[in-house]
Design a protein around this nucleic acid. Structure first.
Lengths: 153, 153
DNA sequence: TCTGAAAGCTTGTCTCC
DNA sequence: GGAGACAAGCTTTCAGA
């Protein structure tokens, strides 16, 4: 696996901003012909630098206007209980991100819901149903300043 | 702007998982021919349900193995100071997300760096340079459980 | 590794259902 | 609304340098 060169980084940066370019357009941007660009992109996909191509949707238009960060502390820290929690979280679609974190809490969840009422329902009926949750602390997003999804290159 | 039907939602859900399907493949998945699918996708783009198409990169492979959530409290809450902070944050590439939040802090940043040393550098030389930061509290991500980027539909 | 050409698909449009 | 057919243009491969 060869290290990436400058052109590979430029390609990655262009594609993480807009993956809907044709190979031809991409080639024009990096001043090469289509063949090498096509092959570089395939290489970047194959070697795992590019994981996926996705459409980015607008949550507000799709009735998911409220984002909440929810800190969770488990009652106990056995492997079994941790694994069960992870499994439960993976099945909750409202939880779009989940991290195991340092500090006072064990997990940080990013939750996408319609509104406060929907969040209350999520906490009572979904999160509340999970075993071994010691405590939870919610932080509400009032405004999104930036959400680039861009890996700095 | 007509409300979306079941097929529109299915298309959105397929595309937010994988946007690299051809219209033909997408059409097969929703049991229609290419024409209506092509037109539905164009409509979803035009009306803003689909904001962008992106390549999702692997941060670990690109020397951004450490994710940190950084809570920031400003010294003062005037509009001028808030606007300046927002402007500063937008120019920092390491900050891939930034939210205005409820609670003890004013902003929550998601920061992508190489390692602890790199984060120290970020805090001292980038964040530390900004005016009017009252206090900051960092939470380190030890493990990523889930990062779906999927709007629940 | 690159350029350029060529086959086979796909996109995007048009007409009919 | 949706199906099928078509031209233009794109993807992908393969010589050649």
């Amino acid at each position: 696996m060869m290290p990436l060169d400058k052109i590979d980084f430029r390609i990655l940066n262009i594609l993480q901003n807009n993956s809907n370019l044709t190979t031809k357009e991409l080639a024009a941007k990096v001043n090469l012909s289509t063949t090498p660009v096509f092959e570089r992109v395939k290489k970047l996909e194959k070697e795992g630098y590019i994981k996926k191509y996705k459409a980015i949707l607008d949550p507000e238009k799709l009735d998911r206007g409220l984002t909440v960060f929810c800190n969770i502390r488990l009652k106990e820290h056995t492997r079994k209980i941790g694994n069960q929690f992870v499994k439960d979280i993976l099945s909750l679609d409202e939880v779009i991100e989940c991290y195991n974190i340092s500090g006072d809490y064990d997990f940080l969840l990013k939750v996408l819901v319609k509104d406060m009422k929907d969040y209350q329902n999520f906490v009572l009926n979904h999160l509340g149903e999970l075993q071994n949750i010691g405590s939870a602390h919610s932080t509400f997003v009032m405004g999104e300043i930036k959400n680039s999804y861009l890996v700095p290159l």
